[in-house]
Amino acid sequence: MRIHENAVRAGAAWTAVAATVPYLTLKVLWLTGCPVGSDDPGELDRLWLLNLLTFGMDAIAVALALAFVRPWGRRVPAGLVAFPMWVATGLLGTILVALPLYLSSVLVLGPEHSSGQGTDIGIADWVFFVVYGGFTVQGLALITAFTLYARQRWADLLRARIGDLPRSPTLAVQRSLGCVAALLGLGAAAARVYWAAGGSVGMPIAMAEEHPRGVAVMDAVTAVMAVAAPTALLVLVFRVRPGGRLRGPLLVAWTAAGSLFGWGSWQLVAFAATTTRVTELRTAVPGLMPLVQAGQVVAAVLVLTVGAMALCERAAAEQPAPSSEPAAR
């Protein structure tokens, strides 16, 4: 069984590495001044920093995939694997949910009549399929490899039950922070539902005028994540169903909070970097969309903080107590 899992993990990890090649190649071409797939080289030049950032993000995904199959991957400190994989799970997992929904809407309702994906910078349609097709394969493969890696490295944690979490002195703080995360999540979810349903108050003017269907789908998915992450956290910190498996709510909190953090941070960075469209980004309620994005990032950080506190305390509680007997001479 272990040999079979190792083979699947290796296959998934190397598939994830291969899936990054088209995207990384495209980014290298854009960064070196080759505007393949775009009819606006000037705009690509203005987005050079964003292209460099996304190149680095995909390069980190390659490093993660290698960590899941190489011997040194088990010796890497847990945080150096867990944090980037948390972000990667949120970013890629959201695409795995949102992309089928968007494509289904195209099949049922027909293509959008607005300018659609990427045409602000003159991106050809085939680039969308190359990029998001690669993200889909990468997401499925990388998450599969990580799941099998985690089953070996953190097997005891995944077998634990909610009631096994210690009732530590910080539990009151954990519960308070969880409630704050829930309030922020509900606020972000309400705004995202409003925008997904067609509301335009607080949206950038250009986006509000076109209201792309893909953006509406992402808003709807983000709203679900904004409710799911703090809800799963509250299940853990209030010990709801203490006999239930820990891995269920832990998986939901991990994925949903990673989505809130990854996409919220990315959208904040993207808005800040696209200074060439300052006038288009002005909204009827100034700062509302960045405020929502910042709120979901803070909610995600609170979920991460509380989860890390609880898991670290559990690990500390499982450490054997030091012996009080003098060592034999």
Score class of each variant (00 low, 15 high):
L26N: 08
L26K: 11
L26V: 07
L26I: 06
K27C: 01
K27R: 14
K27F: 04
V28K: 00
V28T: 12
L29P: 10
L29C: 08
W30P: 02
W30L: 02
W30K: 14
L31T: 04
L31D: 04
L31Q: 03
T32K: 05
T32V: 09
T32A: 00
T32F: 03
G33E: 06
C34T: 15
C34W: 11
P35G: 03
P35V: 08
P35R: 07
P35F: 03
V36Y: 00
G37R: 06
G37K: 08
S38C: 10
D39Q: 08
D40L: 12
D40R: 15
P41A: 02
P41S: 06
G42T: 05
G42I: 09
L44Q: 04
D45A: 11
D45P: 00
D45C: 00
R46Q: 03
R46P: 01
R46K: 15
R46F: 02
L47T: 04
L47H: 01
L47F: 10
L47V: 02
W48R: 15
L49I: 14
L49Y: 02
L49C: 00
L50V: 15
L50W: 05
N51R: 01
N51I: 00
N51Q: 12
N51L: 03
L52Y: 02
L52P: 03
L53D: 08
T54M: 03
T54V: 14
T54R: 09
F55G: 06
F55A: 13
G56S: 04
M57W: 13
D58I: 06
D58H: 13
A59S: 14
I60H: 01
I60T: 15
I60F: 07
A61C: 14
A61W: 12
V62R: 11
V62E: 07
A63L: 15
L64P: 13
L64A: 08
A65D: 05
A65K: 12
L66F: 12
A67S: 15
A67M: 15
F68E: 12
F68A: 12
F68M: 15
